[in-house]
């Protein structure tokens, strides 16, 4: 299974980015291959509007089944993620990616 994180860096110890649409990086962890792929999303700061749909589209291209983030996506982004069938877990905004992953495995994150 592939699990996506919104983060401020590209490693296990990076801090999570609580924002969805304007997150700095998207990390995707493939637990079968034990492998990370990351996407540098920092260009998004140049977008005046519509950051949410744009980031969700990028996320979709990366093919995760689960998204772990902080506050949760806004309305438009939520629509895209729902259409894409991605399950969203929130409340990991102040953790590191590793802590967020563990919290998810232990069912300590809230569904969106």
């Amino acid at each position: 299974m592939k699990i996506a994180f919104t983060a401020k860096g590209t490693e296990w110890n990076s801090e999570m980015d609580p924002r969805f649409g304007r997150t700095e990086y998207i990390l995707v962890y493939d637990d079968e291959k034990d492998e990370f792929t990351s996407y540098d999303n920092r260009e998004i700061e140049n977008e005046a509007h519509g950051a949410g749909p744009k980031t969700s589209q990028q996320l979709f291209e990366m093919g995760p089944q689960v998204l772990i983030t902080g506050n949760g996506p806004g309305g438009n982004a939520a629509t895209v993620l729902e259409k894409a069938g991605i399950k969203i877990f929130i409340g990991a905004g102040t953790m590191t990616v590793k802590e967020a992953f563990e919290a998810y495995q232990n069912n300590n994150l809230k569904g969106f």
Partner: peptide, 18 residues
């Protein structure tokens, strides 16, 4: 220019408010 139309896999999504 407003990210109001997006291709998501095999579908096109429209965001009316954008």
């Amino acid at each position: 220019n407003f990210h109001a139309v997006i291709r998501l896999g095999s579908q096109i999504l429209v965001f009316p408010e954008l």
